[in-house]
Structures are given as C-alpha cells and as structure tokens.
C-alpha cells in the first residue's frame, strides 16, 4: 500500500509507529492508521498543532467548544496520561484501546474505577459520587430533591461499600461491577470494530505494507 507519502506525520508530536502501537493494543495496524485519520481531524479543529487539547476534545464530543462538562473533562484527564493538558496520538490510541470490544474486562473495570476516583486517592468516596450526581442533575432536565440524592447515595454505598468504611476500594468496585455489568456499558465502543470502514482514507496514507497490516 503506501501510495501517498505521509511525511506530514512527523509534524505530530508524540506520533508513534502504527506497527508499535498495534503491538501494544487490541488494534490492528490498519485500525491504528484509521484512528490517525480521526486524530488528525480532531487535533486540527481549533489549533493545528498535532495534539488534542481539551477545547478540541469537547468540540468533538459536543460540537460546542465552550461546553464545560465534568465527565468529559475526566475522560480527557485520563487520556492525558502525561498530564500536559494535551493528548498526543500515542495517548489517544492507548486510551481508546480500553474501549475496544475485545479488551479485557479487567482493563475496563480498572479504567472505570479511575474515572470515578476524581481526586485519584485510590478510593471512590461518597463526596465524589455526590459531586458527579449533582453535575449530572445540573446538565440534565432531571430534578431530584436533596433527600432523594442522599437516598441514592445511601443505597449505592450500602451495595458497593461492602466493608462500610465510607469509600469504595478497587476490590469492592470489581465485585459491585460484576453484580451490575450495565455499569461497564460506557467502557465499550462497538464503533471501534469498524474503524477502518469509518475512515477508509487511511489506505491512501498508509506507510505499512499490506502483509504487515
């Protein structure tokens, strides 16, 4: 393949060889190259610097760069593994790998735990869950009385915090999620199975031989 030169890839800070990224993730080389087409599009939507900043991430998710959102920000922060305020191509592929249908449940459970552990203490605390619940109510039409919010938190911690110490640790989370598998639905993007179909133009920019892909 490789019918068009893709020298421009070197302008992408953090660009990594698709063969290497494929070896580290569930994706094939062709799928990594298709993800690069998506990455190029998102990373050039506000500032064409080969990196995705939070504004571009929010714009891609909501079609509105001004929309602050606790949940999208949290996902961005977990994608931004180097804590630089931007996502490079390697970060992007490795993070999306978690959302692939073929990725292990263990990886998905670990990522989902970190998603809810807002202050990165290794525990999901009641205050964090309350903060997320209130953020959800703030962004939706849903109205709940304070007592109802507290009742939801009581029920949640009664079920999830099995040692009743007021916080959910990783082993409690693993058990809780095994009893409530629907909680992991957000951790799988069926779309990732068809990524080469969604971005067929990757073929024109491929640097890899068909045999390797």
């Amino acid at each position: 393949m490789g019918c068009v030169s893709s020298k421009g890839r070197r302008q992408f800070p953090g660009y990594e060889d698709p063969v290497f990224l494929a070896s580290q993730t569930t994706f094939s080389v062709s799928e990594v190259e298709a993800l690069f087409e998506l990455f190029k599009s998102i990373s050039s939507s506000v500032i064409d610097d080969g990196l995705i900043n939070k504004e571009e991430f929010l714009l891609a998710l909501f079609k509105n760069r001004k929309k602050e959102n606790l949940f999208a920000s949290r996902i961005f922060d977990l994608f931004d593994v180097k804590h630089r305020g931007v996502i490079d191509f390697g970060d992007f592929v490795r993070a999306l790998h978690i959302f692939h249908p073929n990725t292990s449940m263990e990886d998905k459970i670990n990522f989902s735990f970190r998603l809810y552990d807002l202050d990165n203490t290794g525990f999901i605390e009641r205050e964090e869950v309350k903060q997320m619940l209130l953020a959800l109510l703030g962004e939706s039409e849903m109205k709940l009385a304070d007592e109802t919010v507290e009742a939801i938190l009581d029920k949640t911690f009664l079920e999830a915090d099995t040692n009743q110490d007021g916080k959910i640790d990783m082993s409690e989370w693993q058990y809780f999620v095994s009893k409530n598998p629907s909680l992991l639905r957000i951790m799988t993007l069926p779309y990732l199975r068809d990524i080469t179909t969604a971005f067929p133009s990757f073929v024109f920019y491929s640097e890899v031989d068909e045999a390797a892909a």
Binding site: L38, A60, K63, L70, F71, V129, L136, I152, T156, L183
Partner: peptide, 25 residues
Amino acid sequence: KPVSMNAFELISRSPGFSLENLFER
C-alpha cells in the same frame, strides 16, 4: 417511594461519557 437506581447507573448516562460522538466526523 423507594430508590431503585444506584448513583453509578445514573452518572454513567451523562452525555460526557458518550465517546461515540468522537467518531461523528
């Protein structure tokens, strides 16, 4: 009325967690 849903079920419905939108180019 007893509460039937746990907090995480509600939270996981936030559109901010819907990464499908990333693929709508």
